[in-house]
Design a protein around this nucleic acid. Structure first.
Lengths: 205, 205
DNA sequence: TTGTTTTATTGAACAGTGTTTAATTAAATT
DNA sequence: AATTTAATTAAACACTGTTCAATAAAACAA
């Protein structure tokens, strides 16, 4: 069925172009200020036609959110070359924070916003597989640290959660503009100094 | 001028009733789903009249956000009786987390949402005094810890930021539903276990 | 008690929003 | 060529925050 194939391909292309337009507008103006009509205007289709490719606005931004996890996963690839688990844990933190600071809107979508996560729990999927995968790489690394004698007296799950929370907390306070209360010139540097503070603590455990 | 006083009082009363209605609706449905018309309906005034008491919707929610900081400050009062700075720091963490978990919508408004903080930096005030005050009590406590010999090799500012980030990270991941990836039955308890993990670390510093 | 001024309140309108649907157009199949 | 299927659209619905001219009410001055 050559014709069906072509139609499938064309449908996929339009779907991709909706996503591309949504991505462009989202990075320019944010999720809330990007409307279905904006996206439709950009790809020169009517607003209604978008609903033949996506159930609703949340599904579009959920797809973008997936792309963000793919991008973050790519950046984490280099961790394969770091043998020592404690060094790998630190490198993970650095990459995580760099990703968040270089792509604040994407990070916001992935870890702060309500929109894409609400969409997940409304659907039948019912589990956040992108997040679960990312958290598992952290869990495994910390497990290896424990195996090597680090983090004595700590349980993997709460410890992984706490360490994730520390880096997430630092970047999310920054992205959501709660860092102005901190006495420091450069707002980008305070995040890195906070990370150094965390590293100093990890070294003592 | 008794009449002017009464008018002032009446104006203040209506302003308060707008705030009360906004608070009620906000705690029921959240900020985004609480509209000016909803508030106006509840107090039986027209939508337009609300704009004689508040510049815009953000100003209403900024006022509620201030109320949240007042409530948090009240809960922090008991810290006065804790002499040991390290014990006080831990107690601060416990109270902070309890406040966040018991008042997730208010915490969201205070530390996660864009709305009220954007309003602050749009105005001429230009500084988040509620947040600055709260952070300073943390800073002072950590400073006293350092004076007593704790946290050797750490600077106050980055360390305070990092510790705040840890507790903020834990509750904000929870409030924004990113904790489902963590392997634990009770979602409320994981926050406390994370906090216990943090306490274990603090004990070693 | 007038007339005037200030203040408060309103309904309507504006320019948006996400989403649904009936009608239309285009394409593929019979 | 006729019929069926799929894609696209314009229009409508029920909202949103916000503005503004018109109205009503209250306070002040003569």
């Amino acid at each position: 069925m050559g014709i069906a194939d072509r139609k499938e391909r064309e449908k996929e292309e339009l779907r991709a172009s909706i996503l591309e337009a949504a991505r462009k507008l989202f990075l320019e103006k944010g999720v809330e200020k990007t409307s279905i009509r904006n996206i439709a205007d950009l790809i020169e289709y009517s607003p209604g036609s978008i609903y033949h490719y996506f159930r609703d606005k949340n599904e579009i931004f959920h797809a973008l959110h997936q792309g963000g996890f793919h991008a973050l996963g790519e950046k984490m690839q280099v961790l394969g070359s770091v043998q020592n688990p404690m060094e790998r844990l630190k490198a993970m933190g650095s990459i995580y924070i760099r990703f968040a600071m270089e792509n604040p809107d994407m990070y916001d979508l992935m870890f702060i916003k309500e929109a894409p996560i609400d969409h997940i729990y409304d659907q039948e999927h019912c589990d956040w597989k992108e997040g679960a995968g990312a958290f598992d790489t952290l869990r495994q690394t910390i497990l290896q640290c424990i195996d090597q004698g680090y983090f004595k007296g700590h349980d993997v799950e709460p410890l992984s959660y706490m360490i994730w929370s520390t880096v997430h907390g630092m970047v999310s306070l920054n992205i959501r503009k709660r860092c102005e209360v901190i006495d420091f010139e450069d707002k980008d540097q305070i995040v890195n100094l906070g990370l150094q503070s965390l590293f100093k603590i990890l070294d003592k455990l």
